[in-house]
C-alpha cells in the first residue's frame, strides 16, 4: 500500500513536470516570436518616421500650419480654404504607416512582456515544487 502510494506520487510528479515543461516551451516560443516581432516593428517604426519626416518637409503642411501662429485672424477669415489646404497637403499614407507600425510595436511588445512574465512565474513555481519534493 505504501509502495503504491509512493509510485502514484512519483507518477504524478513526473506528469506534472512534463506538463509544466511543455507549457514552458510554448511560453518560450511565444516570447521569442513576439520579441522578434517587436524588434522588426521598432526598425520599421524608425524607417517610417524618416519617411514621414521627408514627406512633411516636401509637403506644404508645416508652412501652412505655421500660419495658425503667425496669422490666426487670416486663418479664421479663410478657414475653409485653409482647412482644405491642410487636408490636401497632409501626407496621409506616411502618417497611416507610422500609426500602423506603432500599433503593431505596442501590441507585440505587450504580448512579449506578458508571456515573459508568465514564463518566469512558471519557472519559479517549477523550482519551488522541485525543492518540496
Amino acid at each position: 500500500m505504501g509502495r503504491k502510494r509512493i509510485k502514484d506520487r512519483l507518477f504524478k510528479r513526473i506528469t506534472d513536470r512534463i506538463r509544466s515543461e511543455e507549457k514552458l516551451l510554448t511560453l518560450r516560443r511565444r516570447t521569442i516570436l513576439f520579441s522578434l516581432a517587436s524588434g522588426v516593428s521598432t526598425v520599421a517604426f524608425v524607417g517610417f518616421c524618416f519617411l514621414l519626416q521627408s514627406a512633411l518637409v516636401q509637403s506644404e503642411l508645416l508652412r501652412a500650419l505655421s500660419l495658425v501662429f503667425s496669422d490666426p485672424e487670416a486663418v479664421l477669415m479663410n478657414w475653409r480654404d485653409f482647412g482644405l489646404l491642410v487636408l490636401e497637403s497632409t501626407p496621409a499614407v506616411s502618417l497611416a504607416g507610422v500609426f500602423a507600425v506603432l500599433f503593431l510595436l505596442i501590441l507585440s511588445a505587450g504580448y512579449a512582456v506578458r508571456y515573459f512574465a508568465k514564463m518566469i512565474s512558471l519557472v519559479r513555481q517549477t523550482r519551488m515544487h522541485s525543492h518540496e519534493y
Partner: peptide, 11 residues
C-alpha cells in the same frame, strides 16, 4: 503634374 496638386494654396 506631380501626383496630385494642392488646389487651395501653395508655398
Amino acid at each position: 503634374p506631380p501626383f496630385m496638386m494642392s488646389a487651395h494654396g501653395t508655398v
